[in-house]
Design a protein around this nucleic acid. Structure first.
Lengths: 201, 201
DNA sequence: AGCTAAAAGCAAATAATTTGCATTAGTGGC
DNA sequence: GCCACTAATGCAAATTATTTGCTTTTAGCT
């Protein structure tokens, strides 16, 4: 059988505890200052003993990262808006909005704060999944379209950098990124620049 | 007078305490597991009482972020290698190396982990400072060269994204990014795409 | 030199974290 | 379906980190 590598024993109670703790964290993050969120308080709200949380997650950072990663999982496919390009524009704007909101920003930070990269990779994986859907649709319709690597490098990365280091990217900025990456598409049938591809997976 | 906005009273003792604490943190990060670095231990090594650290920095995360930000300040100008492009290539490779090393990665994470964006902005500011030097040199020699915004968006951002979310960028990858951003230079004298510029500062 | 207040030290009080042991409740064998 | 097995949780004591009121030191100023 093997349900998954994680949770050696995912049956009833463990799952309930995990759900209760996650929900407690989400509620508390919504209702109070993040600095006031502590493991003992979370435990109390989740009707769980603190040592359970310490044993399962280790510390607050890891727990917050775990919760954030699960919240960043997209629940819907990118909207169909008519063309690959406009799908991309609409999706990227929503992505930037969600990520640059106070809550979104904090979730990314929580994910990046822990030393293990598992959550961060999961997060990037979600993004790539969404982009692949858009790419596949565009190609199905015969549109020339950037590769996944190009989109990650020249649309997602600049947006994320600004969110993390600078200021929030607005809609015009995103439009500019997309214009630029689209204009590069199909520069010539066989061409230079195979060096960019590193994508893997 | 007004020495700076920070440190209302930067004279002798405060400065000594700050230096001792910073050095203690650097030494401990070099010598032990980060999970074992605690404020009481830092205080002991710096010959300072823990409450001093708590009052000045608040908590361990803020202290680590402060130390990391000060360590990321570049100490030298980008090397001159002959052309703007090769300056950029050399500098970007070194930047990526430093940032993707275990220590560099951790410093970025420490900086991003705190809610205030002051340290993150400082860090991005350092990068821009270095790039401006390269740009100025290139333009002085009449080379066509990308703008600061273009370099941040299409060279730095992809590198940083990979470091944070994915895997370390290698030299070929960076070369590809630079080729691409250079190939876009001077598409036409007066041109479209004024929408990309948001740089500020 | 002397005054003032910011910064640091000290120690007691509070809160978080760790840990050993007891209990509960999934999982698989029968 | 019952039983044995063991992972996961609960509980409470011990440890460690953090906060806080008060005192002492010392930089900055006149």
């Amino acid at each position: 059988m093997m349900v998954s590598k994680e949770n050696p024993r995912p049956g009833g109670r463990s799952a309930r505890v995990q759900a209760a703790v996650h929900q407690a964290v989400r509620e508390m993050l919504a209702r109070m200052e993040r600095a006031d969120v502590t493991i003992p308080l979370i435990a109390q709200r989740a009707n769980v003993t603190p040592s359970t949380i310490y044993r399962r997650w280790g510390d607050l950072q890891e727990l917050l990262a775990d919760v954030a990663a699960s919240r960043l999982q997209p629940e819907t496919e990118p909207l169909k808006t008519g063309s690959g390009r406009s799908d991309l524009q609409a999706w990227a704007e929503q992505y930037a909005d969600e990520m640059s909101s106070g809550a979104g920003r904090q979730m990314i930070r929580d994910i990046l704060a822990v030393s293990g990269t598992a959550n961060a990779e999961k997060c990037a994986g979600y993004t790539q999944q969404q982009l692949r859907v858009i790419i596949a649709r565009a190609e199905e319709q015969g549109e020339a379209f950037p590769t996944l690597t190009e989109l990650m490098d020249f649309v997602i990365s600049p947006i994320m950098y600004r969110i993390l280091f600078d200021q929030v990217p607005n809609s015009d900025y995103i439009h500019g990124l997309i214009s630029r990456v689209m204009s590069k598409v199909r520069p010539s049938p066989e061409t230079t620049e195979t060096t960019v591809g590193v994508s893997g997976a």
